[in-house]
Design a protein around this nucleic acid. Sequence first.
DNA 1: GTAAAAATTTAGACTGGTCTAAAAAATAAT
DNA 2: ATTATTTTTTAGACCAGTCTAAATTTTTAC
Lengths: 217, 217
Amino acid sequence: MPSFTEENYLKAIYHLSGSGSQAVLTNEIAEVMHTKAASVTDMIKKLSAKNFISYEKYYGVKITKQGKSEALMVIRKHRLWETFLVEKLRFNWDEVHEIAEQLEHIQSAVLIQKLDEFLGFPTTDPHGEPIPDKHGKIAVPLRQPLHGLAAGYTGTIEAVHDSDSNLLKYLNRIGAVPGKTIKLIGKEEYDESLEVEVDGKRLTISKTVAENILVTA
Amino acid sequence: MPSFTEENYLKAIYHLSGSGSQAVLTNEIAEVMHTKAASVTDMIKKLSAKNFISYEKYYGVKITKQGKSEALMVIRKHRLWETFLVEKLRFNWDEVHEIAEQLEHIQSAVLIQKLDEFLGFPTTDPHGEPIPDKHGKIAVPLRQPLHGLAAGYTGTIEAVHDSDSNLLKYLNRIGAVPGKTIKLIGKEEYDESLEVEVDGKRLTISKTVAENILVTA
DNA sequence: GTAAAAATTTAGACTGGTCTAAAAAATAAT
DNA sequence: ATTATTTTTTAGACCAGTCTAAATTTTTAC
């Protein structure tokens, strides 16, 4: 049974690796975990000893089948709890991430099973992200970050990354929520900011924000 | 903000002290925390430095106003989550303690506020224990352990201590649940076991079990 | 193809929580 | 009241997770 911290590392590695398909570098992990490279190296050794990842010195880390399965269970719990908080407790979309970060570590398979049932077996969370099923199976969504769209094209927002509350509050304010239509007017060369149209309103968003908005054409 | 472990110690001290009215000894804490006296001494120093308890060497520990308030908040969370698990997720009465032990440490005042509202502001948990309100106010229940009843008398089960799942499963099996009427037929001298009648059935229960059944006359 | 820069790992130390073994204080027994 | 017993505290150690500073390896630049 992985610890609290180990679960967080596995989740980060899973996401950074593109659902487990690529190797991940020490500094990448350090950045998203808000920690130092030396700490990551230590943790990598522990996760490797438990066969959650495979590790070669100086080359980076690959998540194993077992590690992927653990990560997907944590993600499942996170997204089910977020759904609960929004659907049942009437939280706003942008207030649930931090609480779900805690709830995702509660250990009880039957709890999650019953929660899933209580929520009516939802397939996506409030941010549009797919919820893995109890076997860890997850729908692969067809979508791309907004800044990958070509100028002039219109897309539908399918999901937004729920990494941080401030981003979500901002997206909420400008109306960029799942289901909405967004048109890419043009790209600014020097800073890669985008001019877009949402709800008939023109606005400029930074590259960083655009990367967190996921659209289908 | 107290840590996970500190919260568990405060809760234990609160209960052992009879809601904060008496001093508690090191070994008593060690026993209920399933830890050693030396570890308790260490933790006592930390809790004392944070003003959650007052401590005199070799004398024991008294919980402060601040410590009591923290303990009551943890108890409030525990009992609200237990209510949620039974009322909403359809858990059995005797399956929820261990899960609530984890959930009680989730940090978010607004979460508990919304959960309370979602449950319709319950005043007792599934075991009959009173739920402290958001200010830490708790109804003082009029009741006594079953073995305090005199032979021949009948009482109503108001609550049972939810310390451990095995006890609760046993109580469930014999029908000793809150709301039920229980008659004390007689006491056995040498081991203080009790002969009782529940649901028209006669049975013998140990002193240990009787102490966990709380009745009103 | 060597030097400089960047990334990674090691070494050693710290905190929180735990332990065992030994010392000190309080209580009980005669 | 002095000894024996129990309770509590201290001393020293360990594990998980983190850090800084230094060493090592890889990558980039010329």
